[in-house]
Amino acid sequence: MLRIEALTKSFDGFMAVNNARLTVDQGEVVAVIGPNGAGKTTLFHLITGQLAPDSGSIRFQEKEIAAKAPHKICRMGIARSYQVVNLFSRLSVFENVQVAVLARRGKTFNLLRPSRTIAVDETNQILESVGLGGKADRVCGMLSHGEQKVLEIAIALGSRPEMLILDEPTAGMSPEETAQTLALMKRLVAEFELTILFCEHDMAMVFSIADRIMVMQQGQTLVEDTPEAVRSNLLVQEAYLGGGAAPC
């Protein structure tokens, strides 16, 4: 479904992503792990078009998407959440998701119908399914950090993507919230047949959900394999698991 080859991006000489490769098949849950600064977020920015790569190719459903505009990539079926909470700060929870739903339906140039009457059911369904149904009218800044991270996912779902990219979906969450988010991700895969690509520092979570794992280091793809193979891979242990900074 997604095939990345020889992808490179540098900032002022610093190779953030260096000759990376990655393959994600339909229906898979793939995790990207690696130490801080390994280039995970840059990789996601490149896939979703926030950044344009220096070289290399990103193919989604057999179409080249490298350096395309973000809104075009989104319309092709890739939605994402952000590592740092990145919401529409003055809008309510409901409106946050509604923006995405309206954008997907192409209703954005409808000038005179009250938006209160459009896409209400679908937006509410999404909010229910992520567990924010009761908080639809809150201004999103009033939510707790964990709820904001969930709202991030809800906005991404509003685009009704085929592939969901989550940048550290459980960062900063309490253990219960992490468990809930994990359950949510599993349900999304089961119910909506979503393909998920995510990165995460919580190793327990990664190993409990990922079908395959890609390990990044200094912008390069170190390993790309099943969880079992990655766990036993010595290279990884050197680079990551045993690298001093103990993962949770």
Partner: peptide
């Protein structure tokens, strides 16, 4: 208050995110 207005407010709050959900800002 129309969908256009809603999207417009979305662009005000966060143009980057708007692009990411498929809006031609």
């Amino acid at each position: 208050n129309s969908p256009f207005g809603r999207i417009f407010q979305g662009i005000r709050d966060n143009p980057e995110r708007c692009r990411a959900v498929g809006v031609d800002v």
